[in-house]
Amino acid sequence: MRKLLSICFIAILFVLQAFLLNTHATSPDGEYDYKSAEFKAVAAQFLCTCGCGQSHYDCDMAGCNNTDAFKKDILTMMKKGMDKDEIRHYYVKTLGEEILMAPDSKGFSLAAWVMPFAALGGAGTGVFVVIRRWVKRRDDTKTLEEDLKEADEVEGEIMSSMIEKERKKYL
């Protein structure tokens, strides 16, 4: 019984999803919304080559036939049921990686993504080591001081006089 219920539930979800996709894809009069979220997910991946420096999703340059044709092609592929990754794969294969708005996450281009974090990790380790060394240096001095058994009261007095001086300065 429980199994049946879950199958029904999944089936309803599929139907609902198909319905939602269908309603989002076209408006009642058949005109497609090129600013819809699902179109954005696909078109924002590709660079418009008209010189605007924007993606095909963003490009709204008057008379840019390039982007008009590209958008129509993307829409045709979406209607065929191709998903975002399939369309991406198709264009990379046809036009090369240059068409993408951001480097691919494989091959040499992966270096673009990894390098900033690798550098940050390396530098972070360096900072950790430096702080540890400085803290250690302080601890060593402290041990020495303890051995010498210097009176804390004198330091306390100096400290409170410094605080008092600072207080007067800022008030």
Partner: peptide
């Protein structure tokens, strides 16, 4: 990328936003 592979890739908004 152009120097290493001969391919000039685009590094645009999605890259910088994500990184």
């Amino acid at each position: 990328s152009e120097a290493v592979r001969g391919t000039k890739v685009t590094v645009g908004i999605p890259f910088f936003n994500k990184v």
